[in-house]
Nucleic acid binder design. Structure first.
Lengths: 147, 147
DNA sequence: TGCGATTGGATCGTGCGCGATTATTTTAAG
DNA sequence: CTTAAAATAATCGCGCACGATCCAATCGCA
């Protein structure tokens, strides 16, 4: 005679999705105080990174880079515009598109922002190589899930 | 003479946090249609998993398991109560605590829910061993970040 | 027994993130 | 040249997720 069956064979700790979900929240909680210094939320920080990489992008381009839709980005970008970090203006050549450009203030923020990633890497307790490997594995996972 | 310096040395694709963040969204988008069948959102599904593992928990216990605060859980649990999946009642022995119990309907949902994880594993394009390894790595990451 | 400190949960305000819908512009077809 | 179809972004509504705050119940300790 065996032990009584467990009430459920779904084990939360086996869920890859839950590991990712809870790690994402943990990152957010870690970033919050660091980004408060810059006056940015986490998604806003990601938008800034894309614009620091290359300025003058449309809403659609930013969304493609961050895997976000315009209904998410539009209000977020308006808040960033109100904060004086970016400018939003219709492309004269195609008035459907809104182009985002860094303001001087937005460009200047890069200097302070450089301090953030080393800070975060330290908190992960991973070497650069381990972080690289994990980033690549999870990137591949995202690609697989998005099919 | 070297090539002109790039406008930014912050590369989005190097960010472990962004990999996790975007993978979390990708999971959500994958789960959405599957959980719609069960009438659950993703965080609600996680609550159900914790209750299927062990029934009759307080709000605080569920929050500890899922790394969520009461201000997130309270309205979520009220919606689940309204949907007839759980009951909420004050613990007579300590009236500060609210105990969550599965209804018959909530317990019955487990059968349909069992179909979800295999479906998701397939979408990850990972073997069980690879998924296990990645889950553990990311779990360790979450632990490190939460210090 | 009494009372300050702690605990557990609820409430409020802000900011994502998405599905669905709408409006406008551009492009394509006849 | 006119009309249909597609692309792009904005708008609206809902559900998390969190920090800050509040309140009631309980506990600690004299």
């Amino acid at each position: 005679m065996t032990a009584p069956a467990p009430p459920s064979d779904l084990k939360l700790d086996d869920f890859l999705c839950f590991a990712v979900y809870s790690a994402s929240h943990a990152f957010n909680r870690l970033y919050k105080p660091l980004l408060d210094e810059l006056g940015l939320t986490y998604p806003q920080y990601l938008v800034m990174v894309t614009l620091w990489e290359r300025d003058d992008r449309t809403v659609g381009e930013i969304g493609e880079r961050l895997f976000l839709e315009s209904n998410t980005l539009t209000p977020l970008l308006k808040r960033m515009e109100a904060a004086g970090l970016v400018s939003r203006s219709r492309d004269p050549a195609d008035e459907r598109q809104v182009r985002l450009r860094l303001t001087d203030e937005g460009r200047a923020l890069l200097d302070k922002a450089r301090q953030v990633p080393p800070c975060v890497l330290e908190a992960t307790n991973l070497s650069s190589e381990e972080a690289r490997s994990l980033t690549d594995q999870i990137g591949a996972l995202r690609t697989a899930l998005s099919r």
